[in-house]
Design a protein around this nucleic acid. Structure first.
Lengths: 111, 111
DNA sequence: TTGATATATTCGGATTGTCGAATATTCCAA
DNA sequence: TTGGAATATTCGACAATCCGAATATATCAA
C-alpha cells in the first residue's frame, strides 16, 4: 500500500472523528437519529442560538455526517449514516465501563 | 434524567471521540490492535520521534483507550477496549462510502 | 553507584477550534 | 417586489491542540 495514501486516509478518518469530538455535535447527531429536524428545532432542543447550530451543522455536513434537504423555507437535516450512531454507542459503552471501573477503584480505596 | 448529568456525560463522550481525532493516534490504536507494543516499537512503526509517541499515548491513556504495563525497563501498551477498533472501523466504512459517492459524482459531472 | 536505555514531561510557538454578536443570504407569502 | 422568517457566514477574542527541542524521570546492568 502506498504510504502516502494511507496517511491521507488516516487524515480523513481523523477528520471524521473530529466531527464527533464536541458535546453539542454529539447531541445534534443523537437528536437527528431520533428523527430529522430543521435548524430551529435543533436550536430549541439544544437550547442554543441558531447560528451556533448552523456552525456545527456545517462541520458535520462537510464530513458527510448529516445531510440537508430543502423543504420550502426550511432545511431539514437528517443523519448521514446510521453507522455513526453505532460508533457513538460503542464509544459510550467504553466510557460507561471506564466510569464503572473507576467507581470500583474509589470504593476499594475508601475501605 | 438530570440535564446536568447528561451534559457531563456528553462532555466525556466527546472527550473520548477527541482521542480519535488525530491521524497519528488512529495509527497507534490500529498498531496496538494488531499486538501490544512498547513505546519505541510504536515510534519505529509510525516513524516518529519517541516524545511525540509518548505525548499521544498520554492522551489515549487518560481516556482509558490504551493501558500501560511495565515490563522491566519497557512499558508495553495494549488496546484498552476492542470496541474502540470496532467504532473506528464503522467510521472508516462511512468514510469509504462517502469517498465512493463523491467519486461517482465526479464521474457523472465529467460527462 | 554509575552509565545506558526507555519513557515521560515541559516549554514556546504555530495552528486550529469555539464562541457571541453582528450581518448575509435564501426563500416564501402577501 | 417587498417584508419577514429560516438559515448561513463572518469577525475578533479566547481557549485548546500540536509540534520539535530540550530536559526530566525511571529502570536495568555492570
Amino acid at each position: 500500500m502506498d504510504q502516502r495514501l494511507v496517511q491521507e486516509i488516516n487524515r480523513l478518518h481523523a477528520e471524521i472523528c473530529g466531527g464527533l469530538s464536541d458535546p453539542k455535535r454529539i447531541t445534534i447527531l443523537y437528536a437527528l437519529a431520533e428523527r430529522s429536524k430543521n435548524v430551529m428545532e435543533l436550536a430549541e432542543v439544544l437550547a442554543l442560538p441558531q447560528p451556533t447550530i448552523s456552525r456545527h451543522l456545517k462541520i458535520l455536513r462537510e464530513r458527510g455526517m448529516v445531510v440537508p434537504e430543502r423543504r420550502g423555507a426550511n432545511i431539514i437535516y437528517a443523519l448521514g449514516d446510521k453507522r455513526i450512531i453505532r460508533a457513538l454507542d460503542l464509544l459510550r459503552q467504553v466510557l460507561n465501563d471506564n466510569l464503572a471501573h473507576n467507581a470500583r477503584l474509589v470504593e476499594l480505596t475508601a475501605k
